[in-house]
Computed example of a mutant assay.
Amino acid sequence: MKRFSVLFLIFLSLTFTIIGLKPVFSISTTNIYKQGIYTLSDFNTAKDGVYSVSNVSATENMSIIITDKEQNILQSIRLKTNSEKHNTIPIDPNDTIILLGKGAVYINPVELTE
């Protein structure tokens, strides 16, 4: 039985490499952020400084607050569980992004078309 299990796992991993599928546990979560204080250098840079944000948590709400270098609030977004994508205002390199809540937020650069 032990030999069968080992052979099964080897063939399963070979199948993934041949077909080009990625197992769920190997998908990168580099754009998912938890509660904390971030700067623009922590994210993938956007050409126009605009990012799409969505709450990927199924049970917890999240809040995003964007402040300038004098801590004036520029934008505040409340994200409900499994929210749709919302675009931020253009963020400058000196701005601070504050994430509040126990969930996780997916932040991805947006390319604006004119």
Rank of each mutant, 00 (worst) to 15 (best):
Phe43Glu: 14
Thr113Glu: 02
Ser28Cys: 02
Thr96Lys: 10
Lys102Gly: 05
Ala104Cys: 00
Gly49Gln: 07
His86Asn: 15
Asp48Leu: 03
Asn94Ile: 06
Leu74Gln: 03
Glu60Phe: 05
Glu70His: 04
Val53Leu: 05
Gln71Asn: 01
Thr15Glu: 11
Leu12Gly: 02
Thr113Val: 01
Met1Gln: 15
Asn108Ile: 08
Thr29Ile: 01
Val105Ile: 11
Thr81Ala: 06
Gly103Glu: 00
Phe8Glu: 10
Ala58Ile: 00
Tyr106Phe: 11
Ile77Asn: 13
Gln71Leu: 02
Val53Gln: 13
Leu21Gln: 13
Asp92Leu: 05
Val53Ser: 14
Ser83Asp: 14
Asp95Gly: 03
Ser28Asn: 06
Glu60Ser: 07
Asn44Gln: 15
Ile73Val: 03
Thr17Pro: 05
His86Phe: 15
Gly103His: 05
Leu99Val: 03
Pro23Val: 07
Ala46His: 06
Asp68Lys: 01
Val110Ser: 10
Pro23Gln: 08
Phe16Arg: 05
Ile32His: 13
Asn87Tyr: 01
Leu40Cys: 13
Ile77Trp: 08
Lys47Pro: 05
Lys47Tyr: 08
Ile37Leu: 09
Ser52Trp: 10
Phe25Ser: 13
Val110Lys: 12
Ile18Arg: 11
Lys80Gln: 11
Ser54Asn: 04
Val53Pro: 11
Tyr38Arg: 15
Tyr33Ser: 10
Ile97Val: 10
Tyr106Trp: 07
Ala58Pro: 00
Arg78Cys: 08
Ile66Val: 03
Ile107Asn: 13
Phe4Glu: 14
Pro90Val: 08
Thr17Ile: 04
Asn108Arg: 15
Tyr38Ile: 15
Phe16Trp: 04
Gln75Asn: 07
Asp95Thr: 03
Tyr106Glu: 07
Ser57Arg: 00
Val6Asp: 03
Ile66Pro: 10
Asn31Trp: 06
Ile10Thr: 03
Gly49Val: 01
Leu79Phe: 04
Pro23Ala: 08
Glu111Asn: 12
Phe8Pro: 00
Ile97Thr: 09
Ile89Arg: 11
Asn108Asp: 10
Thr15Val: 08
Met1Trp: 06
Pro90Tyr: 15
Gln35Val: 01
Ile32Phe: 04
Ala104Asn: 00
Thr30Cys: 10
Ser57Asn: 03
Ile98Glu: 04
Phe25Glu: 10
Ile18Val: 14
Lys22Leu: 00
Gln71Gly: 05
Val50Gly: 07
Ile66Cys: 06
Leu9Ala: 11
